[in-house]
């Protein structure tokens, strides 16, 4: 991961040290990895385009982007938590729980649209805060704490809804949140669905938080060496809880996206989505032990996964082989990353 110019240590005189390094050097640190992931993405795109004339068409690219939106947003949430050296297994069912809360607020309570959206995001943040409390204050290992939360939230969704979906037929404009196209209204030739827009906004926001804010810096620092951060006089528990809460809020956004896509909050969905999200994060080069990774990498990782699923289907690869290939690609991507790391 050493991409900054490195002179022989001893020969660099202390006074003449300040060597101008390009400003986003932190991003450049992961640049190689992203280059690798990005190259794989391009290879997949080119390969599928050559293999089928039906692949590289605006409508299909839009379909791929939209298919990335929910998993992508969840993966962005997972990235933050994984960077602290933790893991969040509850993101899938939390997404569903937030969708249910949106349904309760909009369909049952008849609140206006913005309040329903806020309720879902707020519920996500609170649930994330709960996970964060278990992990940071009660010192429950993240895997266990969020595994528990995953089940609790799944159960709560079923209890609240009575195991029945809540529909959004009474909320005009709800489906437009992911299916409409603001960009398409401005540029008719580019009908990018709003869900994709939301994904890019969320990713951009998280990239900003991670690279430019105190919260982001502590996120990396916690994953790099939590004890050193604590001994620096930083209230590590509070920051860690903040990261989980932020991830939870983003799951709330994912909940809005999926329910607006399906025009309903489906209480039984959500299990398994966390693994897809974590896979995207890992393919994007984020280390599961924390401290290393970027949102851009995650975004590329999520895109690789949807391009792969889409392309294999278009090529009419048998469904059972699709899963084999996807699994193999995950292993290959992480192995390539390992190789690159070892070479330094």
């Amino acid at each position: 991961m050493n991409t900054s110019p490195q002179n022989s240590k001893a020969s660099a005189p202390p006074a003449s040290v300040p060597a101008p390094v390009p400003a986003p050097a932190r991003l450049a640190g992961g640049a190689q990895q992203k280059l690798l992931a990005f190259a794989s993405l391009i290879v997949l795109l080119v390969g599928f385009s050559l293999a089928s004339p039906n692949f590289f068409q605006v409508s299909n690219i839009m379909a791929i982007l939209q298919a990335t939106s929910v998993n992508g947003v969840l993966a962005v949430a997972a990235t933050a938590v994984i960077l602290t050296g933790g893991i969040d297994l509850s993101i899938g069912t939390l997404m569903t729980f937030c969708a249910v809360i949106a349904g309760v607020a909009l369909t049952w309570a008849g609140l206006p649209l913005p309040l329903g959206v806020l309720a879902a995001i707020g519920a996500g943040a609170l649930a994330g805060l709960a996970s964060g409390t278990f992990v940071a204050r009660m010192k429950i290992p993240p895997f266990i704490a969020t595994l528990g939360m995953m089940l609790v939230l799944k159960g709560l969704s079923l209890i609240i809804t009575g195991a029945r979906p809540i529909y959004f037929n009474d909320t005009p404009g709800y489906t437009d949140i992911s299916q409409g196209s603001l960009i398409g209204m401005v540029l008719p030739g580019l009908p990018v669905p709003n869900g994709v827009l939301v994904l890019f906004l969320v990713a951009g926001g998280m990239a900003f938080v991670l690279s430019r804010t105190v919260l982001g810096r502590y996120t990396y620092a916690l994953g790099s060496n939590e004890e050193a951060v604590r001994l620096s006089g930083v209230n590590t528990n509070a920051w860690k809880m903040a990261v989980y809460a932020l991830a939870g809020a983003i799951c709330g956004i994912a909940g809005i996206l999926i329910s607006s896509r399906l025009n309903s909050a489906q209480p039984a969905l959500g299990l398994g989505y966390e693994l897809d999200a974590i896979a995207a994060v890992v393919i994007g080069g984020t280390s599961l032990s924390g401290g290393r990774g970027t949102v851009l990498g995650t975004l590329i990782g999520a895109l690789i996964m949807s391009v792969l699923t889409n392309g294999l289907r278009i090529l009419s690869v048998a469904p059972e082989w699709q899963t084999v290939v996807t699994g193999a690609i995950i292993i290959l991507a992480v192995y390539a990353d390992q190789l690159r790391r070892q070479r330094g």
Partner: peptide, 17 residues
């Protein structure tokens, strides 16, 4: 799964015009 079936359908329509 509603969402997965949605994505499958879109791909099918793309692959088989």
């Amino acid at each position: 799964d509603h969402l997965k079936s949605t994505e499958i359908t879109k791909t099918l329509l793309q692959a088989h015009p």
